[in-house]
Write a protein that binds this DNA or RNA. Structure first.
Length: 636
DNA sequence: GCCGTTTTCGGCCCGACTGTTTTCAGTCG
């Protein structure tokens, strides 16, 4: 948080243009400041503050969930616009206005003076809340020699104390272990960014490059092109016309323009054909400019993965080729040797990747599966899977409306789904067991179904091809029971069962919990099965073989959740599930309109997991989906 | 501090799970 404020202040210094810097303050930053006010009040506040704390927590949560940038709302509608947001009243709106205008919040800063900074630091540890952070700070470590006490002042110091078991008072072994695990998790949170964060940055740069004279094409490469769930640095390559009079001058010209682009925070290095910059949003971006006649082999080389390229080169070497980013050399082709000795030394240049793979006698391999998991052999045998595509998706079966924590009314969701060309959607609001979402109570289910039926009638009258299915996302409780009765569940079309609590259970417990849910005849789908949240929560410990076997036996679909922080099942688990004959479903878990766009990330995971259209139930027509649902009845 | 078919004050403050002080405080979604 301190860093956020400093960053914001820096922006203000650099950009005197009011509107410009206002845009730079994201909902996440505002939400963080509001959340911290709540946390600090929880530490230093009194009994009286309990509802005030809740109000700050609710407001922070609301802001973070919002699809529109709050800065834009303020720009367009002013203070009144802020008051229209549910959960934000006069007082919090004033604070938001202050943050937007000045980058600071005096109330926050006053509270911060009263709360020691290590406490704020400790709050970053997953599993450590305000009370524990306060206790950690206030537990005294005896200093042997001086006989004095000193406090834990940073995470490193805390970790050392916990590990060395220096009588960190008040804490039992299990609690210490949990804190250490939290610290470990926190240390892993740096370095990589979400695919959804990197992709728009790369897209903006690639589009800018494509608009420059002399550039023939440009691509993001590396893990971004392979659509991995997290990305290290952003790598981009671009091609200049090698037949032009001055290809070198062209490339220098492009680099010169690139390093002066408005998104450049800092130039790390800049040469004739390469440059590395730090983007204003944080990541390092490497750009390499190359001649277009070699573009195919370069694209292949920089796309990787390392494992794929090593395996490919090893295969190539054994089969008489030598590969490099500049092309293919034929090293052992006897036929060529007798015809023309010189050909042997000549590099075959490839302007496209298709040509590169074809020269080796292979089919073009989609970037998503270049991980050395059998794709080279499959390509040589012309047996690559026909990977699922975004436009194969006929509907989304995991959507939240205002009936629980979603932002959109069911009718708005229907309108959006029609625009996407979907044939069906399922509204699957949370059930009441997940308290904070204010989900469906049993007595509300009839009303909920009625509303959906009414909208369906209207859609039918309008000759819309969209059908809305009724559904719910129910909670799998710690013992494997669901938080809503089978009687109520049987009234709904699609039931997703998901784990939202008890993330610290042992493998055996979690597995049997999932097995019990899968065996419930009302359950159609297991939602975000591993429960991971990148980067803050590790996946659950699960015996996947047992779970997939049960899913196959009970004809229950496993979800690929398209939320960029989930992307779960992961690619490897998709491969395993597919091998075991399990059906999958790709859903967005939509809470607001922006989330609909995440479907592409779920499809990317499916592609990385070698899935084809036939493996995924929501690629079928409505009648096919209904047939699948009907086929499940025999398991009931 | 927010909200309002209970509308300017009085109600809101879920529910599951874990760890532990074994009855409940702290954390999370």
């Amino acid at each position: 948080m301190v860093i956020n404020v400093i960053t914001v202040i820096k922006f203000i210094e650099v950009f005197k243009n009011y509107k410009h810097y206002m845009k730079e303050i994201s909902n996440k930053q505002i939400s963080k400041i509001i959340e911290e006010i709540g946390e600090m009040l929880e530490i230093i506040g009194t009994e009286k503050d309990q509802f005030r704390i809740i109000a700050y927590q609710n407001a922070a949560r609301k802001i973070e969930m919002m699809s529109r940038e709050i800065g834009d709302i303020y720009n367009e509608e002013g203070f009144k616009g802020l008051l229209k947001i549910k959960g934000i009243g006069e007082s919090i709106a004033e604070k938001i206005e202050e943050i937007i205008k000045t980058g600071k919040c005096r109330y926050h800063d006053e509270l911060a003076k009263k709360v020691p900074s290590p406490i704020i630091t400790f709050l970053k540890i997953p599993g450590v809340g305000p009370h524990l952070a306060d206790k950690l700070y206030n537990c005294y470590l005896p200093r042997r020699q001086a006989g004095k006490n000193y406090k834990l002042y940073n995470i490193h110091n805390l970790k050392k104390a916990l590990e060395k078991d220096k009588s960190v008072k008040f804490f039992k072994e299990k609690t210490k272990q949990n804190i250490l695990e939290g610290i470990e998790l926190l240390s892993k949170q740096t370095g990589r960014m979400l695919l959804s964060f990197a992709e728009p940055i790369a897209e903006e740069i690639v589009n800018a490059l494509k608009g420059m004279s002399g550039i023939k094409q440009a691509h993001p490469v590396g893990s971004l092109r392979r659509m991995k769930d997290t990305i290290g640095d952003i790598d981009i390559i671009a091609a200049v016309n090698s037949k032009s009079q001055k290809p070198k001058a062209n490339s220098q010209n492009v680099i010169g323009k690139y390093i002066k682009m408005p998104f450049v925070e800092k130039i790390v290095e800049s040469g004739e054909t390469k440059a590395t910059i730090i983007h204003k949003k944080g990541p390092n971006v490497d750009l390499e400019i190359l001649p277009d006649e070699e573009y195919g082999s370069l694209l292949q080389h920089f796309t990787g993965s390392k494992e794929h390229n090593i395996a490919l080169r090893t295969w190539a070497e054994k089969n008489g080729f030598s590969l490099s980013e500049h092309g293919i050399k034929i090293t052992k082709n006897l036929k060529l040797k007798t015809q023309n000795q010189n050909l042997k030394l000549k590099t075959i240049k490839c302007d496209t990747e298709e040509k590169f793979y074809k020269t080796l006698g292979m089919d073009w391999i989609p970037p998503e599966i270049r991980e050395n998991k059998g794709e080279i052999e499959a390509s040589l045998n012309h047996q690559l899977p026909k990977l699922i595509k975004l436009n194969d998706i006929k509907g989304d079966l995991h959507l939240h409306s205002t009936w629980s924590e979603g932002e959109m009314e069911i009718k708005e969701i229907a309108e959006y789904a029609q625009k996407l060309g979907y044939e069906y959607i399922a509204i699957t609001d949370h059930t009441a067991g997940l308290g904070i979402t204010h989900g469906l109570k049993e007595k509300e289910i009839e009303k909920y179904i009625n509303e959906i039926n009414k909208i369906n009638s209207k859609l039918k009258a309008q000759n819309s091809k969209l059908t809305i299915l009724t559904g719910a996302e129910v909670n799998i409780l710690a013992n494997g029971n669901l938080d809503i009765s089978d009687r109520e569940l049987s009234k709904l079309d699609i039931i997703i069962a998901s784990i939202h609590s008890g993330f610290r259970q042992k493998e055996e417990q979690v597995t049997s919990r999932l097995l019990k849910a899968i065996q419930n005849p009302n359950v159609d789908i297991i939602g975000h099965p591993s429960g991971r949240l990148i980067p803050s929560r590790q996946p659950l410990n699960i015996d996947w073989k047992k779970v997939f076997r049960a899913a196959k036996d009970n004809n229950v679909a496993m979800e690929i959740n398209s939320h960029p922080q989930r992307l779960d099942l992961t690619d490897d688990l998709c491969l395993m599930a597919k091998d075991m004959g399990v059906k999958m479903v790709i859903n967005t878990d939509m809470h607001h309109a922006e989330h609909f766009k995440n479907m592409r990330y779920g499809v990317a995971v499916a592609r990385r997991g070698w899935l084809e259209k036939k493996d995924v139930i929501n690629t079928g027509s409505l009648s096919e989906l209904k047939a699948w649902k009907k086929s499940r009845e025999k398991y009931g």
